[in-house]
Computed example of a mutant assay.
Amino acid sequence: MFPLYDENPTRITPYITYGLIGMNVLVFFHEISLPGTQLEQFLQLYAVVPRELTNNLGGEWTTLFTSQFLHGGWWHLISNMVFLWIFGNNIEDRLGHFKYIIFYLSCGALAALCQWIIGVNSGVPSLGASGAISGVLGAYIIRFPHARVMSLVFLGIFFTTIRVPALLLIGIFFIQNVISGLANLQAAANMSVETGGVAYWAHIGGFVFGVILGPVLGLFRRDDY
């Protein structure tokens, strides 16, 4: 099930959402233009490396923000940008441009810290917009609990579109990440070697902080500006 668009109209042009998508795409094209060694150095410099953050918070804190514009592959980028495109515009519409960018970057940074707490001595870079976008999803689900999203459903070699509740779509996303995050914790407890993978706890943390920060920044204010 892949979301295509939601059915909530917006009253403003979501310039920040468009800008964020553009920046993520441009940075990714820069990533894939780099040869292997330079790419590794680039990611070490701008992604969150938990061990480096632990040893030098004062010098590494900026990676909590720069890491939000890095991606590990085409599917990582495309899936994140689709979710941002669909759900970000309505949150930007309700918060306004300025508060929205503060909200987005704050959710992303706090999400990265959640992942850092799980493995403070890890040397595996943590990157991606998923934590910030999870914050957007958390805010969306409490602001538009009855919204529906047109989604693409694959049935073997065939596909169709159906309208599904946003609550169901985002709920599945959140539950999958909770289960995977708990499984990763159990695996880490039983293994002495360092493992990489999806930053599930960044997703969970971003979602929770989106639910918290959205109302604080005016998500439920009156509809007129």
Rank of each mutant, 00 (worst) to 15 (best):
G214W: 14
T195L: 07
L217H: 11
N89K: 12
G59A: 09
N184Q: 09
L182K: 02
W201F: 03
L26Q: 02
L70M: 03
G197N: 08
Q44W: 14
L4A: 12
G205I: 02
P165I: 10
L70S: 00
G19S: 13
R221Q: 11
A111D: 14
V198M: 04
G58A: 06
I117S: 13
G19D: 14
G196F: 01
N177K: 03
L219V: 15
V149K: 01
V120E: 09
W116T: 00
E40A: 02
F158T: 10
C107E: 04
L77P: 05
G36N: 04
Y100I: 06
F144P: 04
P165A: 05
Y5W: 12
G156I: 09
V49G: 01
K99V: 13
A47M: 03
G96T: 03
L43V: 09
A47W: 00
L57V: 14
F207Q: 12
T54E: 12
T17M: 01
P50M: 00
H71M: 04
G72E: 04
L213H: 10
V193Y: 08
D93I: 15
T195H: 11
F144C: 07
A183N: 02
L168S: 10
A129E: 02
F154A: 08
E194R: 03
V211P: 15
F69L: 03
F173V: 01
G72V: 02
T17G: 06
G108V: 11
P3T: 02
F28C: 11
Y15H: 08
C107H: 03
A202H: 02
Y225H: 11
F42V: 09
L84P: 00
Y100E: 03
R148T: 13
I175A: 04
G196W: 02
G131N: 00
P125Y: 00
S106N: 11
V216C: 12
T195S: 10
P50W: 01
N55V: 12
E40I: 02
P9C: 03
H71T: 11
V136D: 14
L105K: 05
T63S: 08
A129M: 07
L137C: 03
W74V: 06
L95G: 02
L34F: 12
V82R: 10
E7K: 05
S106I: 15
L20H: 03
V25Q: 12
A129R: 01
S122Y: 00
P125R: 00
I170M: 00
G206R: 08
S180I: 08
Y200I: 12
M191W: 10
W74C: 09
P215D: 09
V25D: 12
G135A: 12
A147N: 08
L39I: 07
N80S: 11
G135Q: 10
D6V: 15
V149I: 15
G19H: 13
R143I: 06
F28R: 14
